[in-house]
Structures are given as C-alpha cells and as structure tokens.
Design a binder for these strands. Structure first.
Length: 482
RNA sequence: UCCUCGGUGGCUCAGUUGGUUAGAGCGGGUGACUGUUAAUCACUAGGUCGUAGGUUCGAGUCCUACCCGAGGAGCCA
C-alpha cells in the first residue's frame, strides 16, 4: 500500500478570535488516533440530518473523502432549534471534540461545541436520502457530484489523470500539448466540429458558391481535433518518448453507452520501437493505472465493487496479475469460426470484428484483456505500418471485458515512399500532409503509439457502464445543457 | 442513423378487457421522540397521466406524428 500521507494544504482561520485549523474528513479518517478526544474543526455540506427533542445527528461531507463524518449536536447549543430544521445540503462550519465510537456503525464522530450555519439550503433540493437512477441524475448533472457514486467516480477520474502523468513522467516521456483547433481534415478519424467566426446567416461564398474560408478567422478551414497523433509524431522525432493527454472531439451521431462527442484521450508515441514494444507499454500502463486505483482509493473501489459491479475487484486483480493475451486478427477469425457460437454477423476475413465478436474474445474465450493485432490494411488508417504479407498492417486493439475496445494503436509506416503510396491509394490529398511526411524525410525511425480512451479507462476501473456517468458534464448528440 | 422498449405527483413505481372523485412508498410541511445510521410514529399538502392530433357516448388505457430517455447495432477511444 502506498503511503497515504496527510494532505499538506491545511489552512487556518480565525473563528471568534481563536485560531483553529480546519481538518479534512480524510485527515480525520486516516489519522483518527492523533485526533481522538481533541478539538477539531471541519466544514462541509449536510448529507443527512435528523433531530429529536434534545439532540440530533448530521452526516457531513466535505468532499475530501468518500466517507462522511457524523456530527452530534445537542440542545445545549444556542442555535439547536435552527440546526434541527436545516434542509439537506446546507453548508456548515463545525467545531467539536472527536470521539471514537468503536461499537457504532461509524468509527468516530464529532460532538459539536459550535455549529456555524454558513448557507441554508432549500427543501426542494432534488437529491434524497435514497437511491436515484443514473438517468435522473444526468438531468441534474450540476448536483450529482454530491452523491456517493458520482463523488467516487469523479474523484477516481482525478486520481487516474494524475496517475497517467505520473506513469509517463517517471519513464521520461515528454508531455506535449497538441492543438485543439486543427488546420485541416487530414486527421481522418471521424466527423469533425467546425471552428469558424463566419456568420452562418451571411452568404460567405466565393464565385463558385463554395464557402470562402480565406475570410475566416484563421484564413483556412479549421476544426476541433479528433486526434493529436499526427502532431505528436513530430514531437516524437525530437523527444523520443512523448504523450498527449487532452480533450478530443468527434461529431459522430453515436448513441451508445461508450461514445461521447467530447472525451479525453491519452496518446503516447515512442521512437525506435515496433508494435511489440507498443503492446508492452500498453500492458504496463494498464496494470500501473489499475494498481494505482486500488492503492489510492480503496474505499471507493470497495464501494464500486459492492454497489456498481460485483465482480470488479476480482477482475481488476486478475488483470494486474496475468499476462494479456496477444493474437493476430487472422487467429481471432479462426477462433471465432471454431467457437461454435451463433453470431449475428458471420466472421469473414477482411471485414472488421463486430462488437459481438470482440466481446466473445475478451469476455468468454480469454476472460481477460486481449490484444488483437495485424488487421487487414483496408479497414485501417493510412499511416499504419504495412506488413510484409502485403495484406495486413501492424495495428493493435486492446479489448477488455465489459468495455470492449479501450486502446487502439499501431506501429507507423516510417518509410516515406510506402507511406506516400498509401496516401494516394486511399485517395487522400498528399498536399495536406506535407509537414507530417517531413517526419519520414528527416531521419525517419520505426515508431509506434496508441490512443487510450480516458473515459473508457474510468468505466473499466469503476465498473460504471455508461460513459455519460464518468464525465462531469457530458456532451453527446442532443445534450449540452450543462 | 437503424432496431427494440419506455415516458403517470419532486423521485421510484402501480393503474385490471377504455367507463364514474388516478393509487402507493420515498421526499416536502407540521407535530412527537435522549443515539440515530435510507431512524421511527401521527397528521397534511401535492399529479389530469411526454407533446400535438385522431377514434369513441367516454382514453392514462386504442391509433398517427413528433419530442425525450434507456438497451442493442454501426462509427470508434
């Protein structure tokens, strides 16, 4: 277990002329012994409250920890009657004595000596002391981080973001900020959102009736990025090991539990490396991230395992301790043909694997993450390394149970002539790629990389089954209210 | 975008072959209660049934269109 040291950002305030340090609930849980029977001060929001004639209980959350803290308030407080009537989600500053309660449901509680009401909530606060559906909570996305599940999910999101940087930085990767606004359509990974300052109500057209992008802000057509890969490959030729981690936008009309219009992607790129190195990196990264989640947020993981996905901990431990399977696309097709399973779509060499095929491979056949490599070249992108067989490319997809494709990557075609031939073959305009092709022109090296869908990682780690529930304010078709 | 299912008080749901004043639990309000943990008990307010149109003596209940949501598919991360 990693050392969970005290948060160093303690801050002090003068309350009633007496200087007192505010503790986070996390600190109180992690170092209960050193606070026992001592004066402490906490602040936060009421999760539940109940009162009787002479005393009452408050469960307070300050966001620092998955668990809440129980406050006991009694009628010796001058504002006892006022406290008793507070609606859920009111905000408080509380001073009191921490009392260890070994025989109760909670390990300790605070006997309040002073309860300062900071902000009174309203009785129409929509979150109740009962289970809500995720569908309903999506309609109040601005309030849902105040629930157990979303509090845990978004804390995990934060911790995983940090873990990603930590993993790559410890390996001397350089973090590259690739542009969000990109200059052309040459990324070729999907439908794009336009970026423009042209007034759609005016006819900004030239003599041919085409939109005149020369008059647009950047003097050319621009879009939101669908991938940082082409940019990061250039930096890879300078730094050897690089990664991007940032938002990505796809204007696809996808209505599934695992697609969003705005999502975050991690894209490492390594030089002097082939597909096998790429998979090694992927596997090491995945195991590191899962272990990090277990070490840093054990309470949240326990909660996910209990209430979101019963087999979660077992599955994750299994993944950490086993080697990922590695098969070629051709082998995958053979496995599927021999499986005896009835698939809606037949498995034919040359066509892409269907979701049902991927699920069978990772969930039923291997029962663990599996890399599928060397896909037919015609179903993959132009930049992928062409294999000697003339039919396949050095691509890989990592499939995991429950989520499906979580990583897609490849070795890149580093030979300029071959890459250019492929661009022409696929009817792309070679002029758009002049700066990308320069990577091959000036000291080319074999290199490889992949894209990890950050939200899919969070889904995998938490067991949440809908991508809309792992993004604070999700953007999907017909949904951008918050 | 396609297929399937659904849309009833703040939330979660029930609502019989279309038939008279649409029900429950939770939540809200009021009161009671010396230890609660989704506390408990009593009383109380609150909906015209996604939207628009149609069939019918009569529609939450049947039909059509549209909107929204969920699951699956395609696209992928």
């Amino acid at each position: 277990m990693r050392n969970l040291s005290l948060c160093k950002s303690e801050f002090s305030k003068k309350i009633n002329g007496v200087k007192m340090t505010t503790q986070t609930i996390k600190q109180l849980y992690r170092n209960t012994d050193s606070f026992a029977d001592k004066e402490v001060k906490v602040n936060g929001w009421i999760r539940t409250i109940r009162g009787s004639k002479a005393f009452g209980f408050i469960e307070l959350s300050d966001g620092s920890f998955f668990k809440n803290i129980q406050i006991v308030y009694e009628n010796n407080l001058n504002n006892f009657e006022e406290i008793k009537k507070l609606p859920i989600s009111s905000s408080l500053e509380i001073e009191g004595v921490l009392v260890v309660t070994p025989n109760a449901k909670q390990p300790f509680e605070i006997k309040a000596t002073n309860v300062k009401i900071v902000g009174v909530s309203n009785s129409d606060f929509p979150l109740q002391k009962k289970r809500h559906t995720f569908e309903y909570l999506r309609t109040i996305a601005h309030l849902r981080p105040r629930t157990n599940t979303y509090s845990a999910v978004f804390r995990m999101r934060s911790v995983m973001a940090y873990a990603i940087h930590r993993f790559f930085q410890e390996k001397d990767f350089v973090y590259v900020h690739t542009p969000i606004v990109t200059g052309s359509d040459c990324e070729g990974a999907g439908e794009m959102f336009r970026v423009t300052t042209l007034d759609p109500a005016k006819a900004n057209v030239d003599e041919n009736g085409d939109i005149n992008y020369k008059e647009d802000f950047f003097g050319r057509e621009t879009n939101l990025t669908v991938s940082g890969q082409l940019s990061v490959e250039n930096f890879c030729m300078a730094y050897n090991k690089v990664y991007t981690f940032g938002p990505t936008f796809r204007a696809e009309n996808s209505n599934t539990a695992r697609h969003a219009s705005e999502f975050w992607m991690i894209e490492p790129e390594i030089a002097f490396a082939d597909l096998s190195d790429d998979m090694d990196l992927t596997e090491e990264m995945m195991k590191y991230l899962l272990q990090y989640a277990l070490d840093e947020l054990p309470e949240e993981m326990e909660f996910f395992n209990k209430f979101i996905d019963k087999g979660l901990l077992e599955r994750i431990n299994n993944v950490i301790n086993s080697d990922f399977a590695r098969i070629t696309y051709t082998e995958a097709v053979e496995i599927l043909e021999k499986s005896g399973e009835k698939f809606e779509f037949p498995t034919v060499w040359g066509s892409d694997l269907q979701t049902e095929h991927e699920r069978f491979l990772t969930e039923k056949h291997f029962k663990k993450p599996v890399f599928v490599t060397d896909y037919p070249k015609d179903i993959k992108a132009f930049y992928m390394k062409q294999n000697d067989d003339g039919k396949t490319v050095a691509a890989m997809d990592l499939l995991v149970p429950g989520v499906g494709e979580i990583v897609g990557g490849s070795q890149r075609e580093e030979i300029q002539d071959k890459l250019e031939a492929r661009i022409k073959e696929m009817d792309l305009d070679i002029k758009d790629y002049w700066w990308y092709l320069d990577t091959r022109k000036y000291g080319t090296v074999p290199h490889a990389g992949f894209g990890l869908g950050f939200e899919r990682l969070i889904m995998y780690v938490t067991g949440m089954s809908n991508i809309r529930d792992v993004i604070p304010f999700p953007r999907t078709p017909k949904n951008a209210e918050f």
